[in-house]
Design a protein around this nucleic acid. Structure first.
Lengths: 195, 195
DNA sequence: TTTGTTTTGGAATGAACGTTCCAATATTAT
DNA sequence: ATAATATTGGAACGTTCATTCCAAAACAAA
């Protein structure tokens, strides 16, 4: 009997995410979101509770897309070291290809909101820890095979890669210079070289 | 004959900066700024034109303070390598000591505003280039004395340090774990080691 | 003290904000 | 077709926003 939902929730989240991503949370108005999604205010509030709820869900979808994209987009059969290199290079390409210089949505959310908004802080920490575990597993594997240096502990290297990955994205957002970004990736990853 | 200004402009900028730093540009209201500075709306608008003008001046003051603090706070007579270490360690201490987790004001400004606001983007790039030149001079000096490896060009290492420095600050803002931050500094700077 | 000028507090303004609300609409099961 | 129910568009609400404005106050020079 009931009328069925007229829109695809995941698609709406993507559109909302793009606006939030480009303008930030506070600079995005509900009018912007109504325009971008094509939905009416009623439908947005009915589905996502409020602006904050919509933002959180958009951010979660982004993080899930990123996480899934990591393994699905990556060529199969790469060695641990090559996986890391592929990830850094993909980030460089993405930064250089974005005419809006939006940077990383998770990173932007962290700096704009995390210190005042525990809900966002939680997502940021969760994402950081997910990346750390991913790096950690690759590094351990690489150290076991001898592809990655054992001069530092796997955990310490994972911390370093996490930081480097963020630094790379930040520099790319500030001044997208491909040569500089290549330098950064090259030197950041040089600590993986076995002796 | 005229009445003289009743307040110290630099002090007002500091107070405004602290609010902007903690809450971000868009989440800070003029009411917040009136309260924090103790000035009336008239005085603020008369002196700084508008909210945006006040923000830009606060950001410029911050960047100038940072730049000057680099050389004035640093112990004299350090070797290039030790200067870099001191800088990274100082950043770690600052992050761990801030109960508000505000992060770096320049970095926050960049991610919140730079892609939509050319004025802010200009400041961000200027700051990035200033840091790059600083690192570059230290690295060249260290490479000349043999304290720093010549395996990479000074410019490439400068790019790397710039990125690492930003990555460190971002991780510290997301999850201030002293051991992890120490790992990051240690490994990021290990590329300086001569063979 | 008086004069000339600037600063200042605080009220006022109009636009924009997030959110609520409801009548009209659309859809499915009967 | 009809009934039942959820969705929808858009008007309306009260707040908060950045900014303007002006009379009153404060100060320096005469």
């Amino acid at each position: 009997m009931p009328k069925t939902k007229q829109f695809d929730e995941a698609l709406v989240l993507q559109k909302a995410r793009d606006v939030f991503w480009k303008k930030g949370y506070n600079a995005t108005s509900m009018d912007d979101l109504v325009q971008a999604t094509g939905l009416s205010r009623s439908s947005i509030y009915d589905t996502f509770t409020d602006k904050h709820g919509l933002y959180v869900q958009a951010l979660q979808q982004y993080q899930e897309f990123q996480r899934v994209g990591l393994t699905s987009d990556m060529p199969k059969g790469l060695s641990p070291r090559k996986k890391i290199e592929w990830l850094f290079n993909k980030s460089i390409s993405a930064s250089m290809a974005d005419p809006d210089r939006k940077g990383c949505f998770m990173l932007n959310s962290t700096t704009e909101l995390a210190n005042m908004d525990p809900r966002i802080s939680k997502e940021a920490v969760k994402n950081l820890e997910m990346m750390e575990l991913l790096f950690l597993s690759w590094i351990k594997e690489g150290q076991a095979s001898g592809e990655i240096s054992k001069k530092f502990t796997a955990k310490a290297i994972a911390h370093h890669l996490n930081s480097s990955f963020n630094g790379l994205k930040l520099v790319a957002q500030t001044k997208p210079d491909k040569d500089a970004l290549r330098d950064i990736a090259k030197i950041s990853l040089s600590v993986l070289d076995p002796d």
